[in-house]
Structure formats: C-alpha cells, structure tokens
Design a protein around this nucleic acid. Structure first.
Lengths: 249, 249
DNA sequence: TACAGTTATGGTTGCTGTGACCATAAGTGT
DNA sequence: ACACTTATGGTCACAGCAACCATAACTGTA
C-alpha cells in the first residue's frame, strides 16, 4: 500500500499506477405487479450501448452520500419517492473493462416497493419500463455493461433475504393482510403456500408483523386483519423454504 | 442522471457537480488465535490520523480488479497469501466527509483465515498487529476514519453468515476436525456447544463438510476424523443458534 | 331468508429435528 | 491395569412443522 498520508496531487505526480475514477450508482428496482416480479429498466439513449436496456442510475455528485445519490436517481429517472422504499446497498463493481470509457466504479443499490407506478421516461433515458424479472435469468434479455450480472445477483440476494429477514414487507404497502405477505413469498418461490401454516409461522416470528386493528374487506370472503411491519429485521425463527413448503394439491 | 454517453472530459468541463474520486480497498481480516477472535490492524505512520490504528488497505491500481487489489494489499501489508483465504466484498463507504483529503471511496473486503501468522510491519504502516475483536464493540479501541463502524459491520456480517453459510470453514485449515469447527461457533457465540449434537447437525447438513479419511491424533483422547469443506455454501438446514443451543451446565 | 361461493382463521395429528443426557470407543500417561 | 481425556454414537422427551380438517365471516343470488 502506498502512504495514505501523502497529499493527493503529489501522489498522482509520483506514479501513474493509480488514477481517478468516476463514481456512479445503479439501481436494481423490483416490485410486484399482477403477481409477477418486475424489474425497472431504462432504454439507453446514448452511446455506449445506445438503444440497449440498462439499469437506471447515474453519477454521484460531490457532497452527496451514496444513499442520497441513489434516492436522487430514483426520483429523476423513475419519478419515485424513495424515502418510503426499502433501499439497501448491494455491491460495488469496478472491473477495469466494465465501462469502455474508463474506470467507472458503480455501487449497486437495491430498491424494493409495493406496486410502483408506471415510470415516466427521464431526461436521459429514451424510455423507462417494467420487465418481468424472470427474463433476467432465462437469457432473453441483454443489458448494457455488466448490468445483467448485477441484476441477477440482486435477485439472488432478495431471494436469500426473504427467508432470514423481514424484507418481504418491503413489497407490501404500509399496512397489509397476511394474504398480501404470503403472495410475496409465493411469487418468489413459485409455489402456493398453505394459508394456515403461513399465518402460524409469521405470527410466531417475534417482531415480524404487528396487528394494526384495522380490517380489509376483500371483494369476496371473510374480512382479513391488517398488519404493519414489526420492529424485527432478522427473523427468528426464520421463514425457511423447505422442499415442499406446505403447498396444496 | 447526466448523459452517460458524453465524453468524460467534456462532462467535467461542463459541470462542477461531479468530480473524480479515489478508490481504495480496506480489509477486515479476522482470524482465530488462542480461541479468541482477532482482527488485524495497522498503526498509521502518516497524517491524517497519524499514530492511530486503522484497517489495512490502500489504493486500487489501474487495470486491477477490486479483488486483485485486496489480494495485493493483503500480501503487501500483512505478508499473507490471500489466494487460500476466504475473500468477500462487504460494502462501500463513500460519505463526502469520511476522508479529510477529499472524496475517497473505499470498498471494504472481508478476509478470513485459520490461525494466521503474526504480521510484519509493512512499508507504510508503522506496525501491524492482531487485536481482540471484542475491543471493537466495547469501545476501548479508537480507529482512524470510519474504520470502527466498518469493522463492527463486518463482525455482524460474519456472525449472521455463520448460521446460514459454510463460512465457519474459512477459519479452519484445509482439513479440520469437527472439534475445530465447533470451536469457531463457540468463540463467536460465546457459549460451549454439545459435541454430540453439533456433530449430528453438521453431518446432517448436506454438503457442509466431507470426510477425508484421515485422522488427527490429539495430545490426549480418542483420535478424531478429519474433514474438509463440502460443496455447499448455503447451509440447508442452517445451523441456527437458539436461546440455549445445547450448551452444557 | 336461505344458500352457495369464497377467503380468513383456528385446531388436530403424525412426523422430523433438536437439546439434554447417557454410553461406548480409542487414544494418552502413570 | 488404571485413570483421564476426547470422539463418537444412541436414547428420549419435546418443540415445530406440513398436511389437513373445521369453522367464521363476508359476498352475491334465488
């Protein structure tokens, strides 16, 4: 390691091994629409990768934290107020060859929310649209840069966290029924879950959800109690997916 | 977001909202010594934070991936060949105020290994030394920059992953006894575990460990079978820590 | 009102995995 | 031969889970 204490400009004169880099945030934005997991993409309007779909994102400004940058891009490119969303740092991608323009370091952020509005095309993106997340993994989607790999890792991360954290509540609104929460797991796991067993497990996990006292009247059927997120983030016991996970039929 | 397609130097002339940043990697290196969790620190020999302990790390060079940079720093500052170690990206810290010299983006890497050698002081660090990780959390240690927060998060990450992943094997050698593996959990959880029950759980977790056929003769007692890491990274079922976790009175 | 349809909620049962504990195996040194 | 130590194996009671059954509470329709 070179001396950390040396002044930055002296250091740069002294060697060409280290150079400046540009810092961006890219967003993996997932939501549920029509019981399907969707990812927000933009169509690039400029080279490189002109015309190709990509993750929304952009440069981090001076005097801005990564989180603030992610929130700003979320607002600018998708018109979404991220302060209500689950926002989480995923990982950083900095391979020298990942951007043809030079060393561009991107920090990937995960943003999750309940059924989000249809995005309006931003100033930079030709258009913005929701794509089924399944297309990330079946190879029918080609993305700019290394965005395909980033989004695939993001998806795996969410899937893992569903079992051990309360991240599923991020896909529900402020209040939700257990049915809503169950749907999240069913979509991710691709199999129906037993309503009764699901209920027992969720309510036995301390701090996962809290009853609000409110009710929701479905178009048909018995009214369902409303819940909101509980104080716990790590689920104990976790909501493990087993081989069969109690599906019926 | 500003147009990604604009040439970088044009862009910089065009606005002062975005500037170059410097990219470093910092390493959270943990090991077990004398049944104690230790973290590798260096003593800074230069301003800022001259004389204060800090995480080892340094600038990422051009044409170097983050992982390669982490491996290089590991070798330069601690004399450790990281190719045998568990190396994992933790998170990226880029708050504008975190480094008094300007926007320095650091990517924190986690490095875990079995009883590692006593480090030799590198060229930049006044000296390098192992410190008990417990001191990170009881506040008796003050570190440069935001390194205290980074290391605390690293420790929590390892603790979480112990239950759901095979990360514990990273603290053992190439081959190890179940006793060795059990010690890892006992150190992290701070409580003794029942050898018999631990054995059953580990062997019932498919792909966690594999018998090598070899034996290890302890100074006293019955010989123990040797195992190596299995193919599984995610533990199924996980090795959950419960309220009592089978400790003996 | 009566009834079917639908969904939420609650309870029962057999099975599996766990913690506590006991027993045995296989080395060491005296 | 014996005590000592540690690894390994087994037993048993209990908790949690999947599967499934039963009931509650709403809708709409005749």
């Amino acid at each position: 390691m070179r001396p950390l204490g040396v002044r930055m400009d002296d250091w740069l004169k002294d060697s060409d091994e280290v150079g400046p880099s540009w810092l961006t945030v890219d967003l993996a934005i997932f939501t549920l629409r029509d019981d399907q997991l969707m990812v927000l993409l933009i169509e690039r309007g400029l080279d490189p990768f002109n015309g190709m779909p990509a993750m929304p994102g952009g440069y981090v400004q001076k005097n801005e934290t990564l989180r603030d940058g992610a929130l700003r891009e979320l607002a600018e490119e998708a018109g979404i107020d991220g302060s209500q969303l689950h926002l989480e740092q995923l990982g950083t991608y900095a391979d020298p060859g990942r951007d043809p323009r030079g060393r561009v370091v991107t920090v990937a952020y995960l943003a999750l929310g309940p059924d989000l509005p249809t995005p309006v095309g931003g100033t930079d993106a030709a258009r913005a649209f929701w794509a089924p997340a399944a297309r990330l993994e079946d190879g029918t989607l080609r993305l700019a840069f290394d965005h395909q790999a980033i989004l695939t890792e993001a998806l795996e991360e969410v899937r893992r966290k569903l079992e051990y954290t309360a991240v599923a509540t991020a896909f529900c609104g402020e209040t939700f029924t257990l049915r809503d929460l169950r749907t999240v797991y069913e979509v991710f796991w691709g199999q129906p879950l037993d309503p009764s067993n699901f209920r027992r497990k969720v309510l036995n996990t301390t701090g996962f959800v809290q009853p609000t006292g409110g009710q929701w009247l479905p178009p048909t059927g018995r009214p369902a109690a409303l819940y909101c997120r509980g104080p716990a983030w790590l689920l104990n016991p976790p909501l493990l997916r087993t081989a069969t996970s109690g599906q019926r039929g």
